[in-house]
């Protein structure tokens, strides 16, 4: 398969392997004991097995599956957080990962300072953030709490700020992992509106949610993962119905 500019994400025969040692070995004594017993690289666990799929620019894919089916692993692979053990991942364009909102926040800093820090985590400089500062705070509706340390924020407030920052930067590819669950209904609606707005401007979306209604309203394609294997892919209606059928 040659590199095609029409694709935003290409995953080819990707395998992700974890070493599922029964406990984590993080001290020398245990390391040597296990080494002696020949138990170091035993129980390996394949979180993704030979996963291939392509996302064209501008498409929105919902990734569905039960807990532990490898959805988050796949997203982490695409973001570059994990490296494939085998296979290839090719990305075309900038990525804003929303795997957990506000992952780049520091609890001791105020919201104002955190906006700049989180922007920098996504690779944007201060001038860019200054320019969009008002827009971010407007969207998050947090003008009254700007100089409060984030540790005093509720999880919903922090999530709002995180979403506002990540979607402000207009990425080519937006990756959303189950992050909107903490917001209240009104904010979830607002986020979905923002996402469809971004889609109109050509942003590619990868979306994980357990709410099938939400997936159906946001996405046009779906990928169903089951124990690290692609079970089905294609139109969101077909895949979604098959998945719901299986659950029943």
């Amino acid at each position: 398969m040659n590199k095609n500019e029409n694709y935003a994400v290409q995953v080819e025969h990707a395998v992700v392997r974890f070493n599922m040692a029964s406990e984590r070995i993080d001290n020398l004594k245990e390391y040597f004991v296990k080494l002696m017993k020949g138990e170091l690289m035993f129980k390996e666990f394949l979180a993704l097995q030979d996963v291939s799929f392509q996302v064209k620019k501008g498409e929105a894919w919902g990734i569905i599956g039960t807990n532990g089916s490898g959805k988050s692993t796949l997203l982490k692979l695409i973001c570059g957080i994990l490296k494939p053990f085998k296979g290839k991942v090719e990305i075309c364009g900038s990525i804003a990962p929303l795997i957990e909102l506000g992952a780049g926040f520091d609890g001791d800093l105020t919201a104002r300072e955190n906006i700049f820090l989180n922007g920098a985590v996504l690779g944007y400089n201060k001038y860019f953030m200054q320019k969009h500062f008002d827009e971010i705070v407007d969207f998050a509706e947090l003008w009254n709490f700007l100089d409060m340390p984030i540790k005093n924020y509720s999880s919903g407030m922090a999530a709002r700020l995180g979403f506002a920052i990540a979607t402000m930067v207009r990425p080519d590819i937006l990756i959303c992992d189950e992050v909107l669950a903490v917001g209240d209904y009104a904010f979830q609606q607002k986020c979905e509106r923002r996402m469809s707005e971004m889609r109109k401007q050509g942003t590619t979306l990868l979306y994980v949610s357990h709410s099938m209604d939400s997936v159906k309203s946001v996405c046009d394609h779906a990928l169903w993962l089951d124990h690290g294997v692609v079970k089905m892919e294609g139109d969101v209606g077909l895949v979604g119905d098959a998945y719901m059928e299986m659950l029943r």
Binding site: L109, E113, L117, A120, G123, K126
Partner: peptide, 20 residues
């Protein structure tokens, strides 16, 4: 170069928090 602003922010953060 892309992550230079992050470096800047992290250093500023450490310095600010040290004496807050």
């Amino acid at each position: 170069r892309r992550y230079w602003p992050l470096l800047e922010q992290l250093v500023m953060k450490d310095i600010k928090l040290k004496y807050r």
